[in-house]
């Protein structure tokens, strides 16, 4: 077990390094012109522009920059933003923004998990019944229609209907409701549809038929056999989902003006703020890999039949 964990961690480290290094190199493919606005070009001559770029450190050889980044990382220094929030330490930018995304993310995970799993059980239990039909309709709408459209209407209509603020305020809890709901809706559908599917799959298994035919009450079959086995498949995704709530949501956060992480990556890539991009990519990769790893551990914990060492070949 111990050696398995070590091996997995080793593999995960390799993945993270490859991800970070490849993004790092990709970023260097972008033209440096992105560091200047039209007005800068009017104001600065070639000498000033080169000097500016040199001071940002973007003219150095990419490998030197990489070594510099890695060196800083060893010392716990993530560097400073260069164009989005010039000179602000990347760590403090993330420390300011992550809590918003985390809070909304975790709240929505709790809501979507409890309601979604409940809906999933309901749908599986009354397969082809009214609940199943309504649930499927909901999931279809949420998953098929581009989320931009329904998120926009939720903000516009429900805030108007209820008289709630259209944007998020830290000191007005009523303004937290709509973003939390918006965050939850897609996840809710995800949990419901997959739990339903896994439960329906399990229901057709021979052991379930056997349990039913030997006279076990339906509730016990449902709870003790079907749900439990179906959850084993689902549970492996939980840790990653929880960890990656830190990424926030670009759409929802920009609709409600939540100062979270959602738009940070896109604006940082666009403004070529390499230190921020690198840090975020590193952060997400670590959390993503860690989430998969924890998911496997959790799955083994929930289902004693699974021996971790066996599935090492299947990878993350």
């Amino acid at each position: 077990m111990g050696s398995y964990i070590l091996k997995r961690l080793g593999q995960s480290l390799v993945t993270v390094v490859i991800v970070v290094v490849s993004v790092f190199m990709l970023l260097r493919l972008m033209p440096n012109s992105g560091y200047f606005t039209r007005e800068d070009y009017v104001n600065m001559d070639q000498a000033a522009r080169t000097a500016y770029l040199r001071n940002l450190g973007v003219l150095d050889n990419p490998f030197v920059q990489l070594a510099h980044f890695a060196g800083g990382l060893m010392k716990g220094d993530l560097g400073r933003s260069i164009s989005l929030y010039p000179r602000s330490p990347v760590s403090s930018i993330i420390a300011e923004k992550a809590p918003y995304s985390l809070c909304f993310g975790l709240a929505s995970i709790i809501i979507s998990m409890s309601l979604g799993l409940g809906l999933g059980v309901l749908m599986a239990r009354h397969k082809d019944g009214f609940a199943d039909w309504m649930g499927t309709l909901y999931v279809t709408v949420v998953r098929a229609i581009p989320s931009l459209i329904w998120l926009f209407f939720i903000q516009l209509w429900i805030s108007g209907l209820m008289g709630w603020p259209m944007i998020f305020y830290l000191d007005r809890p009523v303004s937290w409701i709509l973003p939390t709901i918006s965050f939850s809706l897609a996840g809710l559908g995800w949990y419901a549809i997959w739990l339903r599917r896994f439960m329906v799959d399990e229901e057709n298994r021979d052991y379930v038929k056997f349990a039913t035919s030997k006279g076990l009450p339906r509730t016990r079959v449902m709870r003790g056999h079907i749900l439990r086995n179906a959850m084993v498949v689902l549970v492996q995704y939980f840790p990653q989902q929880i960890l990656l709530t830190i990424a926030g949501s670009l759409l929802i956060e920009s609709l409600y003006n939540i100062p979270g992480m959602g738009g940070l990556l896109v604006s940082a890539v666009r403004q070529q703020d390499n230190p921020i991009v690198q840090t975020i990519v590193l952060l997400y990769a670590v959390l993503g890999v860690l989430g998969v790893f924890l998911g496997d551990l959790l799955m083994a914990f929930v289902d004693p039949r699974i021996k971790l060492a066996d599935c090492s070949g299947k990878g993350a």
Binding site: F36, N43, M44, D45, A47, A48, Y52, N55
Partner: peptide
Amino acid sequence: PKNGIKNLSKDIRKLIFGLNNYYL
């Protein structure tokens, strides 16, 4: 130049006595 003040335009560098040489 280390402070990266982009709006220090070439016009101003050439306006203030001695500034352009100092900067360059």
